[in-house]
Design a protein around this nucleic acid. Structure first.
Lengths: 111, 111
DNA sequence: TCACTTAATCGTATATTTGCGATATAAGAT
DNA sequence: ATCTTATATCGCAAATATACGATTAAGTGA
């Protein structure tokens, strides 16, 4: 691969791609669903629900946190996670914007 | 890694993750934008626009095609690509559904 | 037929992701 | 102080993704 070419694209394209990557794994989508459903913060419960080892779940949580989609605060011996609604809303909007942009020239398929 | 764990999640989660992966690279987002903008089918023009080698672009096109997001038809010595609006619309809907699902318990952040 | 053009595929190198067990860390309980 | 519980991190292995040059395949035109 030698060189990373990703930097040569626009910042918006990079950001959207980053976000897409964050949710590009069923485990991470499942985690988001659990967090949204329970509303309250959760921690090791996710490990019980998902078919993955504790260390693997921890890693997925870290990636979601790095993407800014979730927040984690330490609560005694455990960590309490929840969705970062502000960032989430932003990405939701950005995504719809991309979809809308793509749909400007509406459906005049050529082939 | 030994075993793939992705199969253990729901089909919907897998499908959404697949779609997210398809657009999880700035080059592929850029390709979709070009295809939408020109409306008409394009082929090697994408290679001229993107900062990538022909073989790399071809590979990205293949991935988008595998994800069902674009269609490619052979037109003489060249290949004509365009967005598969039907599949695209479906994924757009699915995505908004995911967002809505997550937002059911509205923004009652706990931490 | 023989070049030329266009695009797909192959082979290869490297980077990243995914997954797990083992180990560390840190707070609470005894 | 020590044990227990909950998480994070480390180290490793395997799988995927990214990127490119070289080659192949297939259509066009001379």
């Amino acid at each position: 691969m030698a060189i990373h070419k990703k930097e040569e694209f626009s910042q918006k394209e990079q950001d959207l791609a980053e976000f897409a990557k964050a949710i590009a794994h069923p485990a991470r989508i499942a985690i988001l669903k659990v967090l949204a459903q329970r509303n309250e913060c959760i921690c090791g419960e996710i490990v019980d629900i998902l078919p993955l080892a504790q260390s693997t779940v921890s890693q997925h949580l870290k990636e979601l946190k790095n993407a800014g989609l979730i927040k984690g605060t330490i609560d005694g011996p455990r960590t309490c996670y929840c969705i970062n609604w502000k960032a989430f809303e932003k990405f939701n909007t950005e995504f719809n914007l991309l979809f809308d942009t793509l749909k400007v020239k509406n459906e005049k398929a050529c082939c």
